[in-house]
């Protein structure tokens, strides 16, 4: 199976006053295409830092990162921007959507910037909204959507550009457990039906148990990596 993302001995440290914080400490693993993996670990264990490195929002101090077999850890800012646009889908914990764009426009925005022909937009977005159960909300602005609905639109936006991997940083942290569970169901559905590769983070056991692969972080170090069927 080909690898969606690979990390080799990745280190990222932050200078915090006098002391150095090893936010990500010599982490290596490979994410296969089609994975539905969780980065698990308590707050401060380095989950966000690691996702930012994979997603090209940051560069590691040392080590190498590959996306789709291509090295990304030594790219310029402009090249990373282009990689984020075409190869990565992001879902953040909250305030994911551009407030002045409707649900539909938030998703379409990505296609426009990617340069996808206008005539393809309609059907691509419509099927996603249908599959994610947010039909009829197309013309609402983010403040008129519930937290769960906002996260579904964010998932639609992350998927619409056909990225190599969708990175979701604690996507359920701001949701109640019922809504969180529904969102995970939908993410799982996207994974199985469309083959979308997911790497998401959480410290919530209920969320972690839904993943097919659990990568545990502790103080920036990779503690365990278990696959379930």
């Amino acid at each position: 199976m080909n690898e969606a993302a690979e990390l080799h001995s990745v280190i990222k440290t932050y200078q915090e006053g006098e002391s150095r914080v090893h936010a990500v400490d010599n982490v290596s693993f490979a994410l296969s295409a089609g994975d539905f993996a969780v980065l698990a670990g308590p707050s401060g264990s380095g989950k966000t830092t690691l996702l930012n490195l994979v997603g090209g929002l940051d560069r590691p101090d040392s080590g190498e990162i590959f996306l789709d077999g291509k090295k990304t850890s030594d790219r310029t800012d402009d090249e990373l921007t282009d990689i984020r646009l075409h190869r990565i889908g992001f879902v953040f914990q909250a305030y994911n959507l551009v407030p002045v764009l409707t649900a539909y426009e938030n998703v379409q925005f990505i296609l426009q910037i990617q340069g996808v022909p206008e005539k393809e937009h309609g059907t691509r977005i419509a099927t996603l909204f249908h599959d994610l159960g947010i039909e009829g909300l197309e013309h609402r602005f983010p403040p008129q959507l519930s937290g769960g609905q906002q996260q579904r639109v964010a998932v639609a936006r992350a998927i619409v550009g056909n990225p190599a991997v969708v990175l979701a940083d604690e996507p359920t942290a701001n949701l109640d457990s019922e809504t969180a569970s529904q969102l995970l169901d939908l993410m799982y559905k996207m994974n199985t039906e469309r083959g979308v590769t997911f790497l998401f983070s959480s410290h919530d056991p209920m969320v972690i148990e839904r993943a097919r692969r659990v990568i545990r972080l502790h103080d920036g170090k990779l503690q365990s990596d278990e696959k379930r069927s």
Partner: peptide, 16 residues
């Protein structure tokens, strides 16, 4: 600031 951070994260270039 956060909104511009989001736009950058989504892959908007300097010219965007």
């Amino acid at each position: 600031t956060r909104e511009f951070g989001l736009l950058r994260a989504l892959g908007l270039s300097t010219s965007h």
